Each structure stands twice: as C-alpha cells, then as structure tokens.
Simulated assay, not measured.
Amino acid sequence: MSNYSPIKTMAVLAIFSLAGCTEGPQTPEATGYEAQAAAPGALDKFEAYTQRFPETTVITQSHATGHVGDFFFTHWKDGGSASLTLSPEGEFSVSWEGGGYNYVGGPGWHYGDEDRMIGYRFDEDSGASYITLYGWGYDETMPTSDPAHLVEYYVLQRWTYDPSQNAEYGTTFVSNGIEYSTYRSVRDDKPSINGPSTFYQYWSKPAEQRPLGEDHEIIFADHVKAWAETGWIIPDMNNLNASDDPTYLVMAVEVFNPADDGTASGRVWDAAAQ
C-alpha cells in the first residue's frame, strides 16, 4: 500500500443536524460539486444526515454520516470544535480545538463484518484520546435492561487515556503478531447510536502502542473471537434499526475534554482487497 499523501482538494459538507442537536441547517462555504443523494435502499432511513459525496469533503457538523467515494464516515461531537476531512481514497485527517467536549469520527464502512481485514496508516497524532478501530452492534429484540443488547467496541491502536481503568479484564491473546488484552465496561444512560442507552463497551488493547509512519493491519475476526470466548458477544453488526446511526465500523479518532488543539491524519483501506 502506498504511503499517505496530503489531501489537496476540499469541499464543505452542508448537512442537516439531527433533532435535538444545537446546530441548525448549515450552508456550504464552498462545494465545488453537486452533492449526490444517498444510495437508495438500506440507508434511506438516515437520509436527514447521510449523503454521498464524490470528492474530498470537510465535515464540521455536530452529527453527520455518509459516504465520500466508497468510504462511509461518522462524525459526532457533543460540543466544541472538531472537523473531519476525508478523500475518496480513504485519506483523512481530524482537527480539534481544546475544550470540554467529546468527539469521535473517521472513515470505514456502514456495517460491521467479522471477516473484515482493515489496513491503516497514521502519520500524525498530536494527542488523541484514542486511535482505534471502532463500531457498534445492536439487537432490538433484546431487553434494553440488558447492556449486551447494544455494544460499542474498540480495537485500540494508540491512546492517551487508559480504558482498562475500572473495567473488567477478559483475556490476553495474539493477533497478527501483536499481544492484546481485552476489557469490558458499562456505560449507563449515555449517548449511543440508539439514543441515550445503557450498553457495554468491549476493548482490545495492545501491549504497546502502534507506531506512526507505518502500515498496519487489524484482523477483526481475532478480536470478535477473543471477546466471544470470554462470553462477550457482539449483537448484530449489520443492523439499521437503531434510531440514530447504522451499526458502522470505522477507523476512528476520539478525543474527550482535550486540553490542547490537535490533529491526527492517516489513511484507511480494505486489506482483504489488496
């Protein structure tokens, strides 16, 4: 896979915020193209904020999802200032300002696939809370009183905050030559793809942080297997029945209460297709 190259063309995504967000409809600063409607079918439910764009795009809204080229993206924040720039080739950067808020965003796919192999490279990380493979599973047939009905999962690569604090240890295993340990925690009545909910978080944390400036590969099936062998099952990862977002799988940058301004940039690709 070729090295990450700087993004050269930009457009600003005009998109409507969800009901309940603090921002209203926004006007593009510069488009340079006509936004295409979301592909008909599966994602129509989320058409208020899911669109498809053929060129490099800058996303600044409080809540936005969609496709740039063939890559799905998520971009969510509960305040502050953060933006995601994404090219159709999977090159992306996240920039944030310091403040008291949470942001998560990045490119990938609008559904999880246990057999997906993810390639990525980060050339810059000025202090994100997490650089991570990130996604959700959801089963609306399970009682909401069971945190297992909704799972937010992380395969960490880099971090400035240790999520294993106050979490339940699961197991230690090796994937693609890298030793990971698993942890599980519970979020009580917190924001999710299905509104405020109580849900599990599953974590895979490598023994050492993954270095910048190198191509890496994540074998997602190894993590799903390790979680399951501990009794931690991810519900349906291809589910469009949640209220706010599909059950996506992305290479994400997350920051919460960042003390300083920062940037993280890299590239993501489907390693199985290479």
Rank of each mutant, 00 (worst) to 15 (best):
Tyr4Ser: 06
Ile7Thr: 09
Ile7Trp: 08
Lys8Val: 14
Thr9Ser: 14
Thr9Ala: 10
Met10His: 11
Met10Glu: 07
Ala11Glu: 08
Ile15Asn: 13
Phe16Gly: 05
Ser17Glu: 15
Ser17Cys: 08
Leu18Tyr: 09
Leu18Asn: 14
Ala19Tyr: 10
Gly24Leu: 09
Pro28Met: 01
Glu34Asp: 08
Gly41Val: 04
Gly41Thr: 05
Asp44Leu: 12
Thr50Arg: 11
Gln51Ile: 06
Phe53Met: 12
Glu55Val: 14
Glu55Pro: 00
Thr57Cys: 10
Thr60Asp: 12
Gln61Pro: 14
His63Phe: 13
His63Gln: 12
Thr65Gly: 14
Gly66Cys: 00
His67Lys: 14
Phe71Cys: 07
His75Glu: 03
Gly79Gln: 01
Gly80Cys: 05
Ser81Asn: 12
Leu84Val: 03
Gly90Ile: 02
Ser95Lys: 15
Trp96Asp: 06
Glu97Cys: 04
Gly98Arg: 06
Gly100Phe: 02
Tyr103Asp: 09
His110Lys: 02
Tyr111Asn: 04
Glu114Gln: 11
Glu114Trp: 00
Glu114Pro: 07
Arg116Cys: 04
Arg116Asn: 07
Ile118Lys: 04
Asp123His: 09
Thr132His: 02
Glu140Asn: 13
Pro147His: 10
His149Ser: 11
Leu150Arg: 09
Glu152Gln: 10
Tyr153Leu: 10
Tyr153Val: 03
Leu156Cys: 04
Trp159Arg: 10
Trp159Ser: 07
Thr160Leu: 03
Tyr161Ser: 15
Tyr161Trp: 13
Asp162Pro: 05
Ser164Asn: 12
Ser175Cys: 01
Ile178Ser: 01
Ser185His: 07
Lys190Cys: 07
Lys190Asp: 08
Asn194Trp: 02
Tyr200Gly: 08
Ser204Ala: 15
Pro206Tyr: 06
Gly213Asn: 11
Gly213Met: 08
Ile218Leu: 08
Ile219Ala: 08
Phe220Tyr: 14
Ala228Lys: 15
Gly231Tyr: 08
Ile233Trp: 04
Ile233Ser: 11
Met237Val: 11
Asn238Asp: 14
Leu240Glu: 10
Tyr248Glu: 03
Val250His: 03
Ala252Val: 01
Glu254Val: 03
Pro258Leu: 05
Gly262Met: 02
Ala264Asp: 07
Val268Gly: 03
Gln274Asp: 14
